[in-house]
Design a protein around this nucleic acid. Structure first.
Length: 227
DNA sequence: ATCCCGAGGG
DNA sequence: CCCTCTGGAT
């Protein structure tokens, strides 16, 4: 108990297999109906729950329907519409300025390459990876968000801290066809069980292979008492 | 008090 | 590397 498999590859594979049984249909939980809406929803999701983003984008997407409309909207008007979202001033600015570039340089269409996406203000590797995967069906990297970062570290799959380094390691450890699923498995498990504050290790299907399990002392005590 | 599918700037 | 942006839920 409380150990992990002998290599990061084996650990990652076992984690994937077990979480797949637990969350067989996990996928993106942001609401969107086109690539522009996807891009905006992902920008808004930074340090904010998807549930809240979905709540606010319902009206937003009904009000603005093209990159040109976002580009021409007064920033204060956008910020007001986003006022219950984290960092709403920054995000209103990102959305408006990214939309300007999408109109002026990409014919009003959300670009489909990593370099073009990350040139947009407010779009880093994480956001670009999500847009590529779910908007363009291009899997160029592994989406490393706060859940993937927390779980891979707790599980002993990586010891890196920066999302960029964790992504590079995961790209080495995981088969490419599993990159997209791995992210959503981590997110689902991170929300339901392996939470940031009080992880519910007693209900965790990975408890016996998790070096961070807080049940170690209890388990040892129980096995001692059994004798 | 901490955390949420981060990114930009210093 | 550090800091800031930021409201709602717990």
């Amino acid at each position: 108990m409380g150990t992990r498999l002998d290599s990061p590859e084996a650990q990652a594979a076992e984690v994937t297999e077990r979480l797949f049984e637990t969350y067989p249909n996990t996928t993106i939980s942001l609401d969107f109906s086109n690539r522009l809406e996807l891009l905006i929803a992902v920008i808004l999701s930074a340090q904010c729950t998807d549930e809240r983003v979905n709540k606010e984008t319902k009206d937003l997407f009904a009000t603005y329907e093209s990159a040109a409309e976002y580009a021409n909207a007064p920033q204060e008007e956008l910020a007001e519409a986003l006022s219950s979202i984290t960092y709403y001033n920054n995000k209103a600015k990102y959305i408006r300025e990214a939309s300007e570039i999408i109109v002026s340089e990409h014919g009003g269409q959300v670009p489909d390459t990593m370099s073009e996406l990350t040139e947009l203000p407010g779009v880093g590797r994480k956001t670009a990876n999500v847009v590529l995967q779910h908007g363009h069906e291009v899997v160029e990297g592994v989406v490393v968000d706060t859940h993937v970062q927390r779980l891979t570290r707790r599980l002993g799959i990586t010891e890196a801290h920066s999302p960029q380094k964790i992504e590079r390691e995961l790209m080495e450890l995981l088969p490419r066809e599993g990159w997209q699923d791995f992210t959503h498995l981590c997110i689902s498990h991170g929300r339901e069980t392996c939470t940031a504050r009080n992880p519910d290790c007693s209900e965790c299907v990975l408890e016996d292979i998790c070096p961070s399990s807080k049940l170690d002392s209890e388990t040892d005590l129980a096995s001692n008492e059994a004798w």
